[in-house]
Write a protein that binds this DNA or RNA. Structure first.
Length: 681
RNA sequence: GGGGCUGUAGCUCAGUUGGUUAGAGCUGGGAACUCAUAAUUCCUAGGUCGCGGGUUCAAGUCCUGCCAGCCCUACCA
């Protein structure tokens, strides 16, 4: 039975380029949509740029151009990046559209008429120079708790959280001006009035993974829901609220409505009715989002939809974040790779497959390990799948396909029977499982060719029919894999369709072998991924990040440090925290320091660890330090080093210092406040 | 501190309602083959299934207590 599905991915913010972290979501969604279409369902993939808010306004101002100019450029670059990865939207809109403004008005009316909106005065920091209210992240200052300077507006590295108004010496990051406290009326949605509905929906709709439902019930639904502040005073880039001049809808109010507005634009172009997609029980609505925006899509958004009379999400699919090589992506490490940069170095097919092989239906972070990426893509896709076609391609071009499907030991039938299990895995967003099932089939296909030895048949005039049969089996098994992989690798499906002169458009094509047709000239469908390319990509990302940082002027100054020290002494093997904890580093005070006349390099130190605890240490720093200048200062020592007998006495530890030696030795210092005996963690 | 998830071969993971000698791929070792992108095929090595208790005729699988890692929270949304 054919279903009707409306699918969205979260709207990317028009404040920056698409990077590989974003792509997890757009690819996850694209794969799901392509799968649904392949299965013959009516499915729309809707997205748009999220264009409003202070950040866009500030950036446009900084770049000396209009917001419209900025968001137009961003939209274009986003769409170019998505296209580069084969992400195919049915419609890509913008939240800054007439349709969105109109539908926002409709939602607003619904909220008003159901008496869910209240006005309250809010005190907020205001930048008098930039003439704008400041969100927490635009304020920095001194932590009121511990006194650290230059801390974020809502929390300090010391762990304390506070309101930006609590900061000592607050500074606006926009202008550097000192913000002042200013009052403004804000409009709030009283979400609590929808508590009963939301409770019910979260618990029983089946739209949420159980982990998410539990989380919401434990954290938010367990108590009174707070009013949601949905307005921002001018100046603000967005839509002015019709019945509240000078106030604008908060970006998170109009962003999800953008899903509907973008659908509306598609409807207008295709002569369809919006109600058939957004107000029909026959249409499923699926949202794909990251775990960071769970809250907006599982409480506010259903509340808004309910109030305005639109369909509630059938399912909110929530995914985790992307790590690279086991750690958070970082600009500095070059692991926050822009989509555009990726495309310069690596085949997008590789990323599509790799993500698919890692994704499940759970809210779990996934890891892109560079070496795993290379191994997996090369051995699975190139070594197993593409190779299957590649190894018989030349013969098949000459022989064509047999008129009836030959005996293959049940391989095709078995793989056809697996189709439903694979489809089910796709449907459940268990792509990793789907990929595993498909690769099992690929693993069974290559031995067939191997044992049939077509290269021997090729040399024997009388065995051309046999050869054709082998090619027929191999190419049909390949074609079957191409169908199963089509949601993930549409371009491979295209290559396969072209080779066999039969376009792959339906899942059902995996169930019946293709026979009796000619085979085109084989051309390479995919190249192996080289680890060097990945390395170059990371390297280029680092350079870009440094350039960006310089351009925005916000980043830390760049230092021209030589790479010689690292070359002289490369990084040691990785250790665990346990290994590190074996080394007991302590802060110590130099109590005495004296020359050892017979020694060439050594000074004799007495280090105090507080109280009466002292250690005698011989340190090779004679050429670099005078004893007198050391007495009284704090150093870091290795305190649990096995004592060693030296010519001049026992040495009971080491003083931590860097440098090649001789006069170039630099003792580690500790910041003011450290006490002798404290351990270094 | 609270909540959740995970812990199976060197690596990435599978192990359905508890049931015969715990599996796959990659990597490693050996061999074969040459059609294919140093691809492929065959053989082989490698695991006290995090640790300790318990239930059971039987536990990787259920219960319980620890330990480790990750994620979310910490009165912000």
């Amino acid at each position: 039975m054919s279903r009707r599905l409306l699918v969205t991915a979260a709207l990317p913010y028009a404040n920056g380029p698409i990077h590989i972290g974003h792509l997890v979501e757009y690819l996850q969604t694209d794969i799901w949509v392509r799968f649904q279409k392949l299965r013959g369902h009516r499915c729309l993939y809707i997205c748009a740029d999220d264009t409003h808010g202070t950040a866009i306004m500030i950036r446009a101002r900084k770049e000396g151009r209009s917001e419209l100019d900025l968001i137009a450029e961003m939209s274009e670059s986003h769409q170019r990046d998505f296209a580069g990865f084969g992400i195919e939207f049915d419609h890509y809109g913008s939240t800054h559209s007439d349709e969105n403004q109109a539908i926002c008005g409709e939602f607003w009316q619904a909220l008003r008429s159901q008496d869910l909106v209240v006005e309250r005065i809010v005190q907020q920091l205001f930048d008098p120079e930039a003439e704008t209210f400041l969100a927490d992240r635009f304020v920095r200052g001194t932590c009121p708790k511990c006194g650290r300077t230059d801390q974020a507006g809502d929390n300090c590295t010391c762990g304390h959280t506070y309101a930006p108004t609590d900061l000592i010496d607050p500074i606006s990051t926009l202008s550097g001006a000192t913000p002042v406290l200013k009052e403004a009326p804000h409009l709030f949605v009283q979400l609590e009035k929808l508590h009963g509905f939301l409770q019910e929906w979260v618990a029983t709709s089946g739209a949420l993974q159980s982990e998410t439902a539990n989380y919401l019930q434990g954290h938010f639904l367990a108590e009174e829901l707070r009013d949601w502040d949905v307005s921002r005073p001018a100046p603000y880039f967005g839509f002015e609220i019709p019945d509240s001049p000078g106030n604008y809808w908060y970006v998170w109010f109009d962003a999800p409505i953008g899903y509907i507005a973008s659908t509306q634009q598609w409807c207008q172009r295709n002569g369809e009715q919006l109600a058939d997609w957004w107000k029909s029980d026959d249409c499923e609505v699926h949202h794909f989002i990251g775990k960071d925006i769970t809250y907006f899509h599982t409480l506010f958004w259903p509340g808004m939809l309910k109030t305005a009379g639109y369909s509630l999400p059938t399912k909110v699919h929530i995914h985790g974040f992307l790590n690279v090589n086991g750690t958070k992506m970082s600009k500095r490490d070059g692991t926050l790779v822009k989509a555009e940069t990726f495309l310069k170095h690596v085949d997008p097919k590789a990323l599509r497959y790799f993500y698919a092989s890692k994704l499940s239906s759970r809210v779990e972070d996934l890891d892109l390990s560079i070496s795993e990426f290379v191994d997996k893509v090369n051995s699975d896709l190139v070594g197993k799948v593409v190779n299957l076609a590649s190894r018989v391609g030349k013969f098949a071009h000459r022989t064509g396909l047999s008129d009836s499907y030959p005996e293959d030991g049940g391989l095709f039938a078995k793989a056809a029977a697996q189709g439903e299990a694979i489809a089910e895995a796709y449907e459940q967003c268990e792509y990793a499982r789907a990929m595993r099932l498909i690769m099992e089939l690929a693993d069974a296909a290559n031995p067939f060719v191997e044992h049939a030895r077509p290269w021997e048949m090729n040399k024997d005039e009388s065995r051309q029919d046999e050869l054709r049969d082998v090619c027929t089996v191999a190419l049909n098994l390949f074609r079957q894999l191409a169908v199963y992989l089509a949601p993930v690798l549409p371009s491979l499906a295209d290559s396969c369709g072209e080779l066999l002169g039969d376009k792959l458009v339906s899942w059902d094509q995996s169930q019946t072998p293709l026979v009796g047709s000619s085979v085109g000239k084989f051309t390479r469908m995919m190249d192996r991924v080289q680890i060097e390319d990945l390395e170059k990509m990371i390297e280029e990302s680092k350079v870009e990040a440094a350039a960006d940082a310089e351009a925005t002027g916000l980043a830390t100054p760049t230092f021209q440090d030589s790479d010689q020290p690292l070359k002289d002494e490369p990084l040691a093997d990785e250790i665990t925290i346990d290994d590190f904890m074996k080394v007991d580093l302590r802060v110590a005070r130099v109590i005495t320091a004296e020359q050892v006349p017979e020694a060439n390099k050594l000074l004799k130190l007495t280090l105090g660890l507080g109280g009466d605890e002292t250690r005698q240490v011989f340190a090779g720093i004679k050429a670099a330090y005078d004893p007198d200048q050391l007495v009284g200062r704090m150093v870091v020592m290795v305190a649990n080093l096995k004592p060693r007998k030296m010519r001049f006495g026992m040495s009971e530890g080491m003083v931590a210092a860097s440098g090649p030696g001789g006069a170039d030795v630099f003792i580690l210092s500790v910041d003011e406040g450290a006490l002798p005996g404290q351990r270094v963690h």
